[in-house]
């Protein structure tokens, strides 16, 4: 029951994010979708992931997008709903992909297994996993984030002589 409510909120937020005219409204709808998804994670027993989802997506990514929108808007032009010229075929591709996925889910054997008991995922276990078995991926992610940080600053930095 609760799952249905939050799934509906998530989907509604996603649809609104992709269809609203105003970009800032899109981002606010997107945060709604992210938050709904975080609640779904919490319901599935992934407490850490749900909270990290809110922290990273609502607290960081959404704000990043908002900054980008305010930095790239065309001086107070009325936001137009511009779609791609090939929107019919693009929409057909999206609908077809959903159809295939839904068909696969409906016919797969995996979804007919009995529901196992709630697995344990304490912070202790996640920490141990990150530090022992998944230590190398963690280091690589750290390296990647550092590279992304430096790269983003280098790309976006405002160089005076280049704008002339």
């Amino acid at each position: 029951m609760l799952f249905t409510i939050f799934a509906t909120i998530t989907v509604a937020g996603a649809v609104a994010a992709m269809s609203l005219r105003n970009l800032v409204h899109s981002v606010l709808a997107l945060t709604l979708a992210f938050a709904g998804l975080a609640v779904v994670y919490l319901q599935l027993g992934a407490q850490f992931i749900g909270l990290a989802q809110i922290l990273v997506y609502v607290g960081a990514v959404a704000i990043l997008i908002v900054f980008a929108i305010l930095l790239t808007r065309d001086a107070e032009a009325t936001p137009k709903f511009i779609v791609d010229r090939s929107w019919k075929s693009s929409g057909a591709v999206a609908i077809a992909s959903f159809g295939v996925l839904a068909w696969a889910i409906h016919h797969s054997a995996a979804s007919r297994h009995a529901v196992p008991p709630q697995p344990e995922a304490t912070m202790q276990q996640i920490g141990n996993g990150l530090m022992m078995r998944f230590a190398l991926p963690l280091e690589i992610i750290g390296l990647l984030l550092t590279a992304a940080l430096i790269g983003a600053v280098t790309i976006a930095i405002h160089e005076k002589q280049e704008t002339r």
Binding site: V11, A14, M18, S19, W87, G91, V93, A94, F98
Partner: peptide, 11 residues
């Protein structure tokens, strides 16, 4: 969600 995202990214 995937299909909505795909449709948005394409359209």
């Amino acid at each position: 969600l995937f299909s909505i995202g795909l449709a948005g990214a394409l359209i």
